[in-house]
Write a protein that binds this DNA or RNA. Sequence first.
DNA 1: TGATTTCGATACGGTGCGGTATCGCAAATT
DNA 2: AATTTGCGATACCGCACCGTATCGAAATCA
Lengths: 191, 191
Amino acid sequence: MNNAKKKSPGRPRSTTSHQAILKAALELLSEVGFEAMSIEAIATRAGVGKTTIYRRYSSKDELVADAIESIREEVLIPDTGNLWSDVDTLIENAAQITLTPLGRQSVAMIISSASSNPGFAQIYWEKYLQPRRQSFAIVIERAKARNEVSTDLDAGLIFDAMSGIMLYALIFPPNESWTAYVRRALSLLLG
Amino acid sequence: MNNAKKKSPGRPRSTTSHQAILKAALELLSEVGFEAMSIEAIATRAGVGKTTIYRRYSSKDELVADAIESIREEVLIPDTGNLWSDVDTLIENAAQITLTPLGRQSVAMIISSASSNPGFAQIYWEKYLQPRRQSFAIVIERAKARNEVSTDLDAGLIFDAMSGIMLYALIFPPNESWTAYVRRALSLLLG
DNA sequence: TGATTTCGATACGGTGCGGTATCGCAAATT
DNA sequence: AATTTGCGATACCGCACCGTATCGAAATCA
């Protein structure tokens, strides 16, 4: 890939401006949502000229995709020796990501993009969901080895179901706590 | 609740215009989503003056709420005497609504609107999901009476989980058929 | 018939955003 | 030092929409 071709003359692009743009974009995403956020507002909040944004990105989609990319973290595979401890860790982790205003909006934007753009759905599936699905399968495999669940449990299906429930509960918030709600649903799935 | 207060003088409000407005609103909702649809666009498509809309509704929320309300077809409650027959009927019914290109688009738009706009989510929940949730509960109650499922099953939770899975499978299509996939997930939930 | 209300149409001022261009200055390469 | 590119700022044009007002025609009631 592109490796440090710094041969270009002239002033280099400001990394601090770049950071400020991404930060402002994420903030606005969490505050007003994808639809309502404008390039102008991002530029103003970042203390940056519109030009500086348009020089980097040609669309809002592009900008926001990069902003989300910039805060992506590692996939963790809990291994506490107990299925429900592992699962609770995963739920807690998902809660921390999704239940903040930013996480909420990010999910909303992803769903919005994915549902109207199969290409993006595919990419998101491969790059984000698939790794998590596989690490969840490992958690389930370990539980099977410990005889905590039936050996013919379909880890993938359960992961999908869990994701669906989380998603649904995010869009239509239940009365009880999100975490407890998801946990309760999951207990049905794990028999 | 028809009160028939027709004592008002002057020209009555056109019911055909009213219908046209609701129809246009629903079409646009499915095509461009809640955020992106404008009153002007609704008026134009309905072949109606903006005035005619503003005379009836003071906000887009209000209009869309009424539009959704207007298509709240009789929610069917299958009663075949067998839980899985009932459930399959429901799944089949959901499939017919969601799996057409237009239905797909509509659901996608509704979801993305709801996820980025809590007001709309609330409206959609009350007017659309809630009635279906309650009729599903009846199906489960009957199954309990027939001893087909455990009596402490939480019908509401299962409905939500089922909805979540359907939603997830719509956005990220599984390899197998949507119907079979949903059915498989549901069999986990109903234990 | 006359009063009243709604009709579709159109125009209006206001707002906010998109996207481009320009300006004078700053920071890098050669 | 000369050149090249990025910088923030601002101005600009065009557009879509909001919400209101106004119009003449149409529909209804007293």
